[in-house]
């Protein structure tokens, strides 16, 4: 069964901006799906339409085969949303926010309190549960929105840049939490600008650009399309000339560092030998960029 089915979706805003052009997409039950795209590509519009915060111009959206317009109550009860921007009541306490949210899904207060307590503990917000939400740090606010989205046990979770502005330690904790959630059966759709996050978490990827889906495939398949890799090499001493390195292209950065780009599967030992012969000793080496990031830039032309 598909967790999400989008057919021929179009959105034209009142000012005439065409945000989505004939978008069709399927996300399988249990997937961890990355929805990527440059700024203004249509990601947030798409998330907005799925979550009923944006009206569509035409097309169909179904959540677990339930049309969101025909049976909105049932469809929405299966969906949890973590929006990009903070959208909770800044004057309420954390437990008020969670218990109220549960109420909108018809969960009785006693059950809502138990769920709220569980999620606040799970997301390390227990100590702050009686605090007014506006006093929380940025990371805590993000975690509160995750807890709120999970209060009714959704089968499909939309994460719209959930780790934006969050420090690396909390981000890693959140990644673990999302992975556990996904392995327990929750389908997750993630939009993010941190491409290593998408590569680390997701098994499928869709790339949207200019309002159209330009890639919809598995992460493994997409990454396998990358047929060259770039490395930054740090030299032990200053070099004067860089040698020819066969099929590898070489680009000087400064007199202590240079970049090489090689075909995937190229034997790097040969390159090191050539460099050594030319009197260049390599101290360290690292990937120039994340693999998905390079592909993303190639596909969307965002570097132009």
């Amino acid at each position: 069964m598909n967790a999400l089915t989008i057919e021929s979706l179009e959105k034209i805003y009142q000012n005439g901006t065409i945000a989505l052009k004939n978008v069709s997409l399927k996300v399988d039950d249990g997937d961890f799906f990355a929805l990527l795209g440059p700024n203004g590509a249509g990601k947030s519009t798409l998330i907005g339409i799925i979550s009923s915060l944006v009206t569509k111009t035409s097309g169909r959206v179904s959540i677990f085969d339930i049309n969101i317009n025909e049976s909105f109550g049932l469809a929405r009860s299966m969906l949890g949303i973590v929006p990009q921007e903070v959208n909770f009541n800044q004057f309420e306490t954390l437990d008020e926010i969670l218990i109220n949210q549960a109420g909108y899904y018809g969960i009785p207060r006693k059950e809502a309190t138990e769920k709220s307590n569980y999620l606040l503990k799970k997301l390390k917000l227990w100590k702050q549960r009686k605090d007014i939400s506006r006093t929380l740090s940025g990371g805590m606010k993000r975690r509160l929105m995750i807890a709120r989205a999970l209060i009714h046990d959704p089968k499909l979770l939309l994460l719209d840049e959930p780790t934006a502005g969050v420090d690396i330690e909390i981000r890693k904790t959140m990644w673990d939490f999302f992975k556990t959630l996904n392995s327990s059966g929750t389908t997750i759709i993630l939009t993010t600008h941190y491409l290593e996050e998408a590569e680390h978490l997701c098994n499928r990827v869709g790339i949207i650009d200019g309002g159209s889906i330009i890639v919809d495939t598995s992460m493994t398949e997409l990454l396998s399309k990358r047929n060259s890799e770039s490395f930054i090499l740090d030299c032990a001493e200053k070099y004067t000339d860089l040698p020819e390195l066969g099929s590898a292209s070489v680009l000087a950065i400064d007199d202590l560092r240079f970049e090489i780009t090689v075909e995937k599967g190229t034997d790097l030992n040969g390159i090191f030998k050539e460099l050594s012969k030319s009197g260049i000793d390599i101290k360290s080496m690292r990937n120039k960029g994340n693999r998905l990031e390079t592909l993303f830039l190639d596909l969307t032309g965002s570097y132009e």
């Binding site: 049932l74 929405r76 959208n87 909770f88 800044q90 109220n100 909108y104 899904y105 709120r148």
Partner: peptide
């Protein structure tokens, strides 16, 4: 106020008619 702070979205995304 709920619209301005955007927490009206909490209700709008829910099954509440």
């Amino acid at each position: 106020g709920a619209k301005f702070q955007r927490h009206i979205e909490e209700i709008l995304v829910s099954p509440t008619p």
